[in-house]
Amino acid sequence: MSWVVRLATSAALALILTGCGRSAGPAQHAGQLTVGFAQVGSESGWRSAETRMAQDAAKQRGVILKVADGQQRQENEIKAIRSFIAQRVDAIFLAPVVSTGWDEVLGEAREAKIPVILLDRPIETKDAGLYLSAVAADNTLEGRVAGEWLVGRLGGKACPVVELQGTVGSTLVANRKKGFQEAIAKAANIRIVRTQSGEFTRAKGKEVMEGFIKAIGGANICAVYAHNDDMMLGAIQAMKEAGLKPGKDILTVSIDGVPDIFQAMAAGEANATVELAPDMGARALDVLAAYRKTGQAPKFVQTPSRLFLPDTAAAEYARRKGLY
């Protein structure tokens, strides 16, 4: 009986893996740099874009990039790192799925003298020497940029804001919340009247926004701040279905910069998004190149948190459509 399950599971997993994984072949061309990339998974469009852009950047620079899909599980990522060490890659990029529990495997990489660059998310460790550098966005800054845009846009008009949080309990959510609050702290006209978790998904974002509209009335909401674009896309639908005009009756500002939000901005249904740049792979490759030349590397490389507005939306949508 159990063999059937194992067979079925492995068949299904194989099906998935062939779609996403690159089998790590032993062939290494002389003089060419080989980098192993332990990626979280392909759980979102942003994540796929990060992977794709890293691959494009590697190709441009003549670097062989081996991507391992971690299926959002730490043990898979650890296994991938061990396999990269065994293959003696020149460097390892790690987008950690969780923040703790990396000390042992990164210690193994250090012993093998393979530099590790963290992408996108931080890890918690007492020994900062375990990794060479970290390339990530400042999530607090993202929240602040979003908040500052709202302050500037309103110009002193009284404005009750509702907030769609991400999944409760992550540092990402805490920071995006904190940054926004810092930015609006000085503006007495803006105050957050409701906050609820939309769990980073469209469906939940829509449901929660529906609730907000019913609970306090659409006329009493002046702006929505969402911790990611997907929740905002759900919220935009909720507003439309309630007969409100998002982008006009209610201002929107969210974070990530996924293609669909640009489409919404182009259609006049959204007002602003703060991009979480998905080109972390390229920056990490630059850090690596500099390190191999000079032996020096910055401990933290902050990616920019750019604000995008409707004026460029149509062009940005066209540019990003294929990437994500």
Binding site: V5, A8, T9, A12, L13, L15, I16, G19, C20, S42, E43, S44, G45, R47, S48, Q71, R202, D230, V258, D260, Y324
Partner: peptide, 22 residues
Amino acid sequence: VATLVLMVAGRGVAQLITSGRI
């Protein structure tokens, strides 16, 4: 156990169909 197989694998199949994007 039987339905757990599809619970775990099914989401992967769905991702395969959407190529991991929304």
